[in-house]
Write a protein that binds this DNA or RNA. Sequence first.
DNA 1: CGGTAGCACTCGAGTGTACCGACTGCTAAC
DNA 2: GTTAGCAGTCGGTACACTCGAGTGCTACCG
Lengths: 336, 336
Amino acid sequence: MDAAERRATVLKTVVEEYVRTAAPVASQTVTESRDLGVSSATVRNDMTQLEREGFLAQPHTSAGRIPTDQGYRYFVDHFTAAGGLPVGQRRAVADFFATTHRALEDLLHETSQLLANLTSHAAVVVGPDADVVRVRTAQLVLIEPGTVLAVVVLGNGTVEREVLRSDLDGDDVARASAAFDAALRDQTLAATNAAHRTGDVDVDALLAQAIGAVATRAKQVSDHLYVGGVSRLAAEQDAFTTTATTARLLEMLEEQVVVVSLVRDLLDHGVNVSIGSENDVDELRDCSIVLAPYQVEGTLAGTVGVLGPTRMDYAQALAAVAAVSQQLGRLLLPPS
Amino acid sequence: MDAAERRATVLKTVVEEYVRTAAPVASQTVTESRDLGVSSATVRNDMTQLEREGFLAQPHTSAGRIPTDQGYRYFVDHFTAAGGLPVGQRRAVADFFATTHRALEDLLHETSQLLANLTSHAAVVVGPDADVVRVRTAQLVLIEPGTVLAVVVLGNGTVEREVLRSDLDGDDVARASAAFDAALRDQTLAATNAAHRTGDVDVDALLAQAIGAVATRAKQVSDHLYVGGVSRLAAEQDAFTTTATTARLLEMLEEQVVVVSLVRDLLDHGVNVSIGSENDVDELRDCSIVLAPYQVEGTLAGTVGVLGPTRMDYAQALAAVAAVSQQLGRLLLPPS
DNA sequence: CGGTAGCACTCGAGTGTACCGACTGCTAAC
DNA sequence: GTTAGCAGTCGGTACACTCGAGTGCTACCG
C-alpha cells in the first residue's frame, strides 16, 4: 500500500468513525480501528496533508479531525460501491411491498415512511413532473344531477379526479366525455390539447371547464411531496447548529415546492448524492440528500430520497433508496 | 374588589404575562402591568395563597411564579369568553376561504396550515368518523377495458375513488353500478349494506369487490389527519424539556391514528381545551390542545384544532379555531 | 384585619481561575 | 518514509465568588 492509498484509507476510516461516533476522530483512533501497519504519528502526518487538501477539518487545535463536505464527497465517490442492504432490511422492504395494496397516494406516503425507518432519517417521495406523465384515459361521469366528475387515469397508475358543476344531461355528458378523452389521451398533463370541440356550446363549455380543471390540478398533484420521518430531523438536532435550523428545515418540507424542484434539478443533472454546501439552498447547508429515481415501464416516474445530516451513513442510505425505488417501480407496473 | 376577586385578577395577570414573556412573573411585574391599587407585598400574599391552592408554582425559591396546568384551566374557564379575532386575522381567514376552490384533501391540508399561521402553533384538521358520513351517491365506471373505477360522493363533499379490476363489459358494469349505488346510498361508510345482489355471478363479484374496497378505504380515509405547521413545534423547543420530546411529538403526529382518536375522544366528552397533564397521552404532558368541531349542514363533519405548548395564548387560539371551523363548515356546504 | 414597608434570605446566572486530559505538531532518531 | 517522544494548545469541568431578582416574614399602619 503506497502513501496515497493509505491516505485514502485514513480518510475512509475517519468518515466511518465520525459517522459512527459523532466525535472528532483522533489519529490513534484510526490506527486502533483499522490495521494500517503504521503508527499514529504517521496517520497524523497523513491527516495534516488531508487537511491541507481540504478533505478533513479540525474543530479546534487540540481535537481530532472531522470530514469536510469535500471529504464526504470523496468517500461517496470512492467507497460506496453498490453495497446491498442487510438481510433484515431487505426483508422489511420486500414485506412492505408484498403486503401493500393501497391507493397510490397512501402508498407513496407509506413508502416515504418505510424509507425513513430504514435509514433513520427523513425521507421524501416525489411524483413525476407533469410534463412527463401521459394520460392513459380520461372520462367525464355524471355523478348526480348537476354534478360531473372528471376522471383521468395516468401512466403511472394514479387516478386524478375533479368535481365539476354542469346541468347537462347524461347524453351530453357522454359526448363531452368522448371529446375529453380525445383531448387528453396520450398527452401529458402539462400540454393538454384544448383544440377539441363538439360544436355544441354547452358541451364545449363543460369540456373547457374539465380541461382547465385538470390542467390546474396537474401542477398541484405533480408537485406533491410525500414526506416521512420528519421526527428524525428533530432527533438529529445536535447535528444542526440551532433549533431554528430544524424549524426552517421543517418549514421547507411543508412548502413542498422548493424541495420538489430541488430534487428534480439534482436528478436532471445526474446527481444522486448532494452533500452539505453542495446544496444551493441555505437550509440544507448542514444536510445531505441521497436520491434514486424510480421507473414505471422504463420511463421516469418519480424519485425517492433521504434527507439527513451530512454526517450520514451514505453507503446504507444509497442501498436503501436503491432497494426502495426498484421495488416501488416494480409494484407500480400497471396490472396486466 | 374583594380579596378573592383580586386573587383571580392576579392569576389572570400572571398567565397573560407568562404567556407573553415566557419568564416567571414577579409580584412587582403584576402590580406594574395592571393597576390593582395594591402593593407588590399584597400581591405576594395572594400569590402564596394561589400557590397553596395549586394555581401557581415557583421554579425555585427566589423566582417569580408560573401558572400550573390548573392555573391555565382556571384562566381558560373564566377569562376567555368568546373574544373575536383581530381584524387582520379575521380578514386573512375570510380571504383564504373566499379564494380557495381546491379539492377537499388539499383544502383541509391548507386549512391546517392557515390555522398554524394564525396561531403560530401546529394545527390539525380531522375528518369525520366513518360511521357519521353518509354516502350521497355511488357509482362504478368502466375506465378502460379491464379497469373499473368505484366513485363514492360523500355528504361532506369528499369524492372517494378506488380502482378495481374486472373484465365485465359496459352493460354489466352499469348494472353493477346501479346495485352499488343502491347498496351504499344514504348509508354510512362504516355500515354498508352488502345484501344487494343482481343475480349475475360476475356482476355480483364486482359488486362485492367494490363494496369491500370502499369499506376498507373508509377506515383509512376517515382516520386521516391533516397536520400543518409542524415547524412551529421545533421553534417551540424551549417550551419542551428535551429535543427528544419534540421528536416524539412529531412521531405521534405522523402516526395519525393516536391523534385522531384522541381528538374524537375529547370532543365526545365535550372538551374543547385540554391542558398539559389533563392529556392522558404521555407525549402531550407539556402540550395543550384547543379544538373546535365544524359542521356541514348541521351535522358534525370534523374538527379543527391547535396543538401548542401549555404556555399558549388560549384566548387567541380559541378565537382562531372558532373562526376557522365556522368558515370551513360554511364552505363545505354542498353547492346548491 | 387587610394592607404595606422594609429587610434578611435564597438561589440562579454569570464570571474568573485553575486544572486536567485529549490531541496535535514538531524534532530527532531510525 | 516512519517512528518515538515531548512540548504546546485548547476545550471542558470544577470551584469560588459576586450580583441581582424576587421572595417570605415581621413589624407597623389605617
